[in-house]
């Protein structure tokens, strides 16, 4: 089985160019960011649920490595992607404000 490093290296290389260093840093930062951000977001819930959800998120993040390519695709300039996330957030904000909690 190949090491995780090799997998990462090849995926990042397929993006082309000389920016593997940046890609690696981004990868590790994302690994740190996602669980932390979710812990911060989930603190409105009770501690057991938030702990379970945080572990779930960490597992999801760990299994979907490498993340950089996916994240940069989701943040591209394409109209449809922007529209997709805007639709989600518009629904989510109203749900959390009016219906949630």
């Amino acid at each position: 089985m190949r090491s995780l490093y090799d997998t990462l290296h090849e995926t990042l290389k397929s993006r082309g160019g000389t920016h593997i260093g940046g890609g690696f840093t981004a990868e590790y930062m994302l690994l740190a960011f996602f669980p932390l951000a979710f812990v911060a977001l989930l603190r409105g819930l009770d501690s057991l649920t938030s702990a379970v959800l945080a572990i779930l998120v960490t597992a999801l993040v760990a299994f979907s490595l490498p993340l950089v390519k996916k994240v940069s695709r989701e943040n591209s300039d394409h109209f449809a992607i922007a529209a997709f996330y805007i639709a989600i957030v518009m629904g989510l904000v109203l749900f959390l404000m009016v219906g949630g909690f």
């Binding site: 920016h19 930062m29 960011f33 911060a40 977001l41």
Partner: peptide
Amino acid sequence: GLSVITLAFGSVMALV
């Protein structure tokens, strides 16, 4: 929540 997500995506996307 949305500010944290912006911070995360904004700075990570700056890296790549």
